[in-house]
Amino acid sequence: MLKQVEDGVAVVACTTCRHSADARDDAEGQRGGARLASALKAVQASDPAYADVAVQEMPCLFACQDFCTIHLRAPAKVGYVLGRFEPSEDAARAILDYAKLYGESAFGQVPFKQWPQGVKGHFITRTPPAGFVVE
C-alpha cells in the first residue's frame, strides 16, 4: 500500500533497518532505522535551516546488506541511497546537511568538496529521476 506524501526534497528513513552489521536491535530492543529516523526528526526540528527538507519514514528500503539506510530524493533530481550510519544525532546532522545542499543543487549532484564528512563512504546507489538518465 502506498501513502502519499508531500513532493519535495526528502530524506526517507528505513525504520526497520538493522542497528549495525552485527545486531538487529540495540540494547533497548529498538531497530537502528527507527533510532536514525528519530534522530533525523529531532535534528530537523531543532534547526530552521532544515525546514525545506522533509523527513519521511517507511519500512524496509530493501538495502538489508547495509544498516541504517536512507533514500534522498526530490522531483527531477538524481536520488541516492545511503547507509551504514550509526543511528546518532551526528549522522542525522550530516545527512540533513547533505540533503540541504542536494536541495539547493540544480539536478541533485553536489560537488564532492562540499560533502559533509559524515556522508562520505555511505553512498550505496544513485537513481535517475523518472524520465531521465544521467549523462
Results as ranks from 00 to 15, higher is better:
D25S: 00
S46K: 08
P128F: 05
R18N: 15
Q56I: 13
E135P: 15
T15I: 15
A42R: 12
K100R: 15
V12M: 05
V119F: 03
V81T: 15
R126N: 02
H122I: 06
T16E: 11
V5G: 05
A106F: 02
V5C: 06
Q44V: 03
D7N: 14
Y50D: 11
L61K: 09
H71P: 00
A91T: 01
F85E: 10
W115T: 05
K41N: 07
D26Y: 08
L61E: 10
A39D: 03
C14S: 14
D26A: 09
R31C: 05
Q117I: 00
R93S: 00
L101C: 12
V133I: 13
Q56S: 10
P111V: 03
V11Y: 10
E57D: 11
A37Y: 01
A27D: 15
V43R: 00
V9P: 15
A63F: 07
L72Q: 02
A94D: 11
V78C: 05
P116E: 02
V5D: 09
A99Y: 05
A94V: 09
E86F: 03
I70C: 04
R84W: 04
D90Q: 13
V134D: 13
C68L: 05
Q114R: 12
F132M: 14
Q30E: 13
A39S: 08
G79A: 15
H19N: 14
A106P: 01
A49G: 05
P75M: 04
G118W: 08
A34G: 12
A63P: 01
L40R: 04
L61N: 10
V5A: 12
L40G: 02
L61I: 13
H71Q: 10
G118I: 09
I70Y: 04
Y98G: 01
F112L: 14
D52M: 06
